[in-house]
């Protein structure tokens, strides 16, 4: 092997090695940040929204403000579901309740901004990510449109732009741009009744508990999102059981916990299989050779 070639090769190897170390460190740092944001006390201080369904009149101003804030088409048209043109909508449930005002219950829906989001864990290229500030954000420049996030989300939130030949994923990002400018999310800002409240998750949980305590007849004793699917940054209070309002009954464990535990075993599995296969090769080769003689 000639000298310049080996020199080039060393340079190349150094470069590759450096890139790998950098990638690894980068990975570790993000993991730490995300872990701290989701599982540590930091999530208490992350931004959150409290939705008090007993205060919602179904005026739909939040859903329209959301369209405007996200520059979505037809900002005057009230959306009836989540899709690539509506990141939030207000669902109406007819509930035969015993209290007089319980004819209709309105439920504003959007991304729940899970503390340990399945969409982000599943995303092939890491286009979805939980930030320390609270929002689960989306990097449209990375997304390959595989749509795995749509399967992983237990709330059916991410939507795909089916009419676009180069379609992408669409979902609420908790108005990340407005938050960066110290503004409240557009939907919260637009709400005239105080059904939507913006604040630190810990403070909102405290408030929600206080409301249930002082008005036990008005609320069911459950803050949806406090523990569901590992906890979410959007929290709900209601006068009727959440199961009647289309809220899925989810266990406290975060969705991606099982898959992540399995994925962690990848290097172990690879090493074990490679070793066993090699060992088996030598044993079997010797045995068949012996049989031939």
């Amino acid at each position: 092997m000639s000298a310049p070639f080996s020199c080039h090769r060393r340079r190349f190897l150094q470069w590759v090695g450096g890139a790998l170390v950098w990638l690894g460190l980068e990975r570790l740092a993000t993991d730490r940040r995300v872990a701290a944001a989701t599982r540590g006390p930091e999530s208490d201080y992350a931004w959150a929204v409290l939705v008090d369904l007993t205060r919602c009149t179904g005026c739909n101003r939040c859903a329209l403000a959301c369209k405007t804030a996200n520059r979505l088409p037809n900002p005057e048209q009230v959306p009836t579901g989540l899709d690539s043109g509506a990141y939030s909508f207000v669902a109406e449930y007819k509930v035969a309740g015993d209290s007089a005002d319980a004819a209709s219950v309105f439920v504003k829906r959007q991304c729940m901004h899970c503390l340990h989001p399945a969409c982000a864990s599943a995303c092939t290229v890491g286009a979805l990510r939980k930030t320390a500030e609270g929002p689960v954000v989306y990097d449209a420049a990375k997304c390959i449109g595989c749509r795995y996030c749509q399967y992983a989300c237990p709330f059916g939130v991410p939507t795909y732009d089916w009419q676009n030949p180069l379609g992408l994923i669409h979902k609420c990002e908790l108005c990340r741009e407005r938050l960066a400018e110290n503004e409240k999310p557009a939907c919260v800002d637009a709400c005239p009744t105080g059904a939507l409240q913006f604040g630190r998750r810990r403070d909102l949980l405290r408030q929600a508990r206080a409301r249930i305590r002082s008005n036990p007849d008005r609320y069911v004793a459950h803050i949806y999102g406090e523990h569901e699917a590992g906890g979410t940054s959007v929290l709900y209070l209601s006068s009727v059981p959440f199961a009647d309002l289309g809220f899925p009954a989810l266990p406290d464990a975060a969705v991606p916990e099982v898959a992540e535990a399995v994925m962690k075993q990848t290097p172990t599995v690879a090493f074990t299989v490679a070793t066993l296969a090699t060992a088996l090769h030598f044993v079997m080769k010797r045995r068949t050779a012996a049989n031939h003689h």
Binding site: A122, C143, I144, D161, L166, P256, E260
Partner: peptide, 23 residues
């Protein structure tokens, strides 16, 4: 099937080791 077939190689550039689909 990919929504962005023009980006099929993105998994080489952008890593998410938690993702089964990445592996």
């Amino acid at each position: 099937d990919l929504g962005r077939p023009d980006r099929f190689y993105h998994f080489i550039l952008f890593w998410n080791v938690h993702s089964p689909l990445f592996e």
